[in-house]
Amino acid sequence: MRNKWRARLGVLTGASALVLSAVTASPVAADEVPPATARGDEGPPGWREVEMPPGTKIAEGVAPVQDAPLPDVKAAAAAAAAGPPSSCLGATAAYGAGGCFVPYGDIFWVGDLRKDGMSAAVGIYTDYGRAPDVCLNKNGVNTWVTCNKDYREDGNVRLQVWRYDSGTGKFYQPEAWSSWIPVDGQY
């Protein structure tokens, strides 16, 4: 009976040590990075600046609008708050930024998901050598914007999301990458 008790205690001790090591050794999730509080030219504490490749084209996204003959402010606000359609592929997110790609029309969606004084950005890369594009969401927290591009239908695109500081014009990690997405949407 004493041996059974010792075996159970050994298993319990081992399990406790394993849980403790997992809790203390696990990396901080991207969603747990502290918000930008005291930014300067060096960026938020603990964040690394991301250098853009040469030739990168940066565009500001526009709020999505529903199909209507005349601009409808309420419809545009509802579409911006609703987020991307279910046909959006390659959904990718990191601290406060999200993005995805709609293959029909080559439209990129960029969501600013955290109130921290920074904007969301999505970088778009191709597998055929085209210079990267970046789409910025400067519309504020809980909004989505779109950037309409034109890519080769036989190519693939990949998304990278970051935070963007419009005051300094710099991009910051944490970042996240999508897998390669066929431009024609056919996997």
Rank of each mutant, 00 (worst) to 15 (best):
L159C: 05
A30Y: 12
G169I: 09
C100D: 01
T143I: 07
G185M: 12
V145E: 06
S26D: 02
T168V: 06
P35M: 02
P34N: 11
V73I: 13
L89H: 01
A76K: 09
L18P: 06
F171R: 11
V11L: 15
V62R: 13
M1T: 06
S179F: 11
G155Y: 12
Q66C: 09
V161N: 05
K74W: 01
G117L: 04
N137C: 03
L20F: 15
P35S: 09
A15G: 05
S21C: 10
V19T: 07
R2S: 10
A76I: 13
N156H: 15
E175S: 15
G40T: 12
R163D: 06
G185A: 12
G123D: 03
E51V: 14
S166F: 01
N3R: 03
G117W: 04
L113A: 10
S179E: 15
P64N: 02
C147R: 03
A79N: 09
W47G: 08
T37R: 05
D31A: 15
N148P: 00
T13V: 11
K115Q: 14
P64W: 02
P182Q: 02
I181A: 04
P182N: 06
P69T: 09
V23C: 07
T56A: 09
T56L: 06
K138T: 03
R2W: 07
A79Y: 08
P35K: 08
N139Q: 07
T126C: 13
P34W: 10
G155N: 13
L20T: 14
P85L: 03
I181K: 00
A77P: 04
G105A: 05
A22Y: 11
W180I: 11
D133G: 08
P84L: 04
A17R: 01
T146Y: 07
S26F: 10
V19E: 04
L18K: 10
Y128V: 14
Y95K: 09
D31V: 14
G155I: 13
T168Q: 00
L89P: 00
G140R: 07
Y104R: 13
V102I: 00
V50Q: 12
W47V: 11
N137A: 04
S179C: 00
G155H: 10
S166P: 05
W144C: 04
R114S: 14
L70G: 08
F101P: 03
V19L: 13
V157A: 12
R130W: 03
R8V: 00
P103F: 02
G55F: 01
